[in-house]
Design a protein around this nucleic acid. Structure first.
Ligand SMILES: [Mn+2]
Ligand SMILES: [Mn+2]
Ligand SMILES: [Zn+2]
Ligand SMILES: [Zn+2]
Lengths: 122, 122
DNA sequence: ATTGAAATGCAAATGATTTGCATTCTCAAG
DNA sequence: CTTGAGAATGCAAATCATTTGCATTTCAAT
């Protein structure tokens, strides 16, 4: 037993979603309503299996998304809203890191902080 | 009253440090021992005044550093160790964001996830 | 010296996530 | 088919970093 009913259901929800989701959102979307702990355990399981990824910001919950996607973010420091974009320039730096640190890169996190359209005055 | 004794002391500790510090580290370094809440309130105050910045990773506490520095990180997903580097390529993307989103950038967060020298096998 | 706003200390609350433990499920072995 | 061990689940309590409420203290301006 590993990829159980709940876990598959949760993986499907995440893969279908056009944007990253929080544990709570996933819990609410799921019509068969597993226990909240089960959701968290499923998310942990799926992330360990590299089927999903997560990102956390300064405050608030983690966001989960399919490993098939590659996201970067705009994080509003006022209301917490996140938007995504995909343009990625990290590979330029991987070479630099490889040369300068004995660090085995598995992923990267990149987001802009600032004010979303609603929160910036004007 | 604004930039009080405790707050100045804490700002000095952060500015002198060669690496980002957690609230607890700052608390322990400070020889005059303010209350822990005071440390947190001071950090919040200093960050609002843009004198310091903070970053949080997937788990564990925030790290605080002087706004005079610009850091990026290598975050070990196994032991939580952080290392810093300064090479920054974000400005290339700022232009892209400006053109495509109505988002007012104030800062950015960029770090690599992976395994530090100790945690990677071999 | 008086006063009021802001800062502090202390303890309790918070929010997201994790954990312990009893119960239930699954599936391969007999 | 029965059985039993190893997962997975549900539930409640615990955790961890951080925040908050409230009583008390500090401080600068009058
Ligand atoms: Mn990228
Ligand atoms: Mn940068
Ligand atoms: Zn906003
Ligand atoms: Zn490590």
């Amino acid at each position: 037993m590993e990829l159980t009913k709940w876990r598959e259901e949760i993986l499907k929800i995440i893969e279908k979603s056009k944007k990253p989701l929080t544990a709570e959102e996933i819990y609410k979307i799921n019509k068969f309503k597993p226990n909240f702990s089960t959701v968290y355990r499923a998310l942990k399981f799926l992330e360990e299996k590299n089927l999903i990824k997560s990102i956390s910001f300064d405050k608030g919950p983690k966001y989960f998304y399919s490993s098939k996607k590659h996201y970067h973010f705009l994080y509003c420091t006022n209301c917490g809203k996140i938007e995504v974009f995909n343009k990625c320039i990290a590979s330029q730096l991987e070479n630099f890191i490889y040369k300068n640190f004995k660090f085995q890169i598995t992923d990267h996190v990149f987001y802009f902080k600032g004010l979303c359209e609603n929160c910036k005055e004007g």
